[in-house]
Amino acid sequence: MKHFTIVSILVILLTVFVYVLLQAVGLLPTQASSQAVIIDQLFDIHIGIISFLFSLIVVFIGYSFIVFRRNKLLPDEEGQHITGSSKLEIVWTLVPLAVVIFISYLGAISLAETRKIDPQALEVKVTGGQWYWSFDYPDYGITSDALYLPVDRQVKLSLTSMDVIHSFWVPEFRVKQDVLPGENLVKELRFTPIETGDFMVLCAELCGGAHAYMNSPVKVVTEGEFQDWVDEELGNFPQDPESLGERLAKNNGCFGCHSVDGKDGVGPTWKGLYGSEKTLVSGEKIMVDEEYLHESIVNPNSQIVLGYPANVMAQNYSELFTDEEINNIIAFIKSLE
């Protein structure tokens, strides 16, 4: 009995030590959503259990090795002949069983709490594509490449993908949802930001190529600042074709593949593109003019520039954009000398 008393005390001490250590290290990013608060409570319980079970096993093993070590004078000493105890086995089957069922129950409660629905939630349609995020605010008629959110108001995201599977994740909000292609597979994600500041939405599902860079800014602002942003988006921007084209390109993820500063990307850079000479995969040399740009937007596979892959760019821009919009984008490309 003496041994078990000592071991129990050691287990408790080590448990407390490990728990305090893990908490002190700061395991998780800041809590910037009400969901994060709920989820972190469950993390706390997990950390407690991990600390206890780790200490339990390690202390028993370590104690036994030290205290019951072999007598140096009896090198052939054998252990005691104890083959087992059904009573003990039943205990350490049933007790863990009860514990895991209880943890699952807590997990279910935690999940339910994170999914509480607020009918007043702000709706945002999120579109993921290789390799960009685009955010639509149907209530305001705004499309943006950054996710602006008012603080302390639930947001309801409807997520869909243009091509492969992506995943919406903001570490500070804790929640994550895969973004699937297919009209019948639009997924929903709700959370309530509780802290103003700048965050990043990261694509968490490997989506090929520039997956690592599929990040977009998330700006959580006060209700007033959000209104200002809406107002500005709705009217206060230049209406000339170049600026309209730039907004369109920015909000539809074109810059994910085409840089505007001359850097090489998945697709050719737009800087100095207009009027330059390019060699196509077919070997043909062409001069980039308006006609070529138009064709490359609506039917991208027809004239791939040598050194760039086919089948990467979406084929449906003629449906997505009006002719006027395409002309605006071309006007923008022309302006990038």
Partner: peptide, 23 residues
């Protein structure tokens, strides 16, 4: 393996896994 086992449950409960998945 103990560490492997103990680090499993946080990714087994749904809400915590929403954070941990694919990390």
């Amino acid at each position: 393996f103990l560490l492997g086992g103990l680090t499993g449950p946080p990714s087994g409960t749904v809400s915590t896994d929403l954070h941990l998945h694919d990390t």
